[in-house]
Computed example of a mutant assay.
Amino acid sequence: MSKSIFLLRHGQTTFNAQQRLQGHCNSELTALGQNQASTIGASLSKKIGNINQWAVYSSPLGRALETAQIVCEQLGIDSDNIVTDERLKEFNLGDWETCFIPDLVKQNPKLLNHRDWYLSAPHCESYESVVNRVKDFLADNAVPDNVIVISHGLTGAVFRGVYAAMSYSETFEQDLPQNAYFLLADDKISRIQCEVTTVETV
């Protein structure tokens, strides 16, 4: 694959902070989430040479778009240039969307024993469906060779898994950071950690 891809997860959302599942539903970024997006954008600005050679693609879900807009602000890119792409959306988590994770654990105490526990949700989108979405995106010649992608935790893990030909278990052993992002280039994945200043709430 000849593309160079910076892969980002959206910043912390209200639902993330509340331990609620989002999937295809949405909640806004928290102050910390906005700060995470801003910090990653500032880090990206140091990694990217000629910003005019890069395109920005985002999941159409609000939390990803909000992150993309903050990143673009840091990069000096007009947010009108963000391309939304359905293939970058999070897994649809079926009947568990908006549910509180602690409530789900009460119903099934062993739920979190498996890293792919999210996919136990009734009517959840299948792993194969998301793999196919990502494969289609990576093979799409209409997507520029240098692209910044703003996606989600689980879809981002699958994206990295597809790119590096990981097994199912390897894919779900990855972490889902909101204070780091990844460069996918030359068949390698590099993690770039960002130190995010703690946001004080008054």
Rank of each mutant, 00 (worst) to 15 (best):
Q69C: 03
Q178L: 02
D186P: 03
Q74I: 01
R115L: 08
K110V: 11
A164R: 09
V147W: 11
L44K: 06
A42W: 06
Q193K: 14
V202Q: 06
A42M: 09
T198Q: 09
G153T: 04
H24Y: 12
Q36A: 10
Q34C: 07
A180H: 11
L154S: 04
E28M: 01
D186I: 02
R191F: 04
Q193G: 01
T39C: 09
C124Q: 00
A157W: 00
S129G: 04
N50S: 10
A139M: 05
P60D: 09
A55C: 07
W117P: 08
P144H: 10
E125C: 02
R115T: 11
T171W: 04
S38A: 15
N179Q: 12
W117T: 03
G41C: 12
I82F: 07
P144F: 06
Q69P: 00
G11M: 12
G161T: 06
R87C: 07
R87L: 09
L75E: 10
L65M: 14
T198R: 05
L61T: 05
A55H: 11
A164F: 03
L119W: 04
I189N: 08
F159M: 09
G156T: 00
E195F: 10
G41S: 08
A164N: 13
L88Q: 13
T13D: 11
S129F: 06
E28W: 01
E170R: 04
L65Y: 02
G156R: 00
A157T: 11
I48D: 12
V202S: 12
V162S: 08
K3N: 07
Y57W: 11
H152A: 07
E66T: 11
A17M: 00
G62C: 01
T201P: 02
L154Q: 03
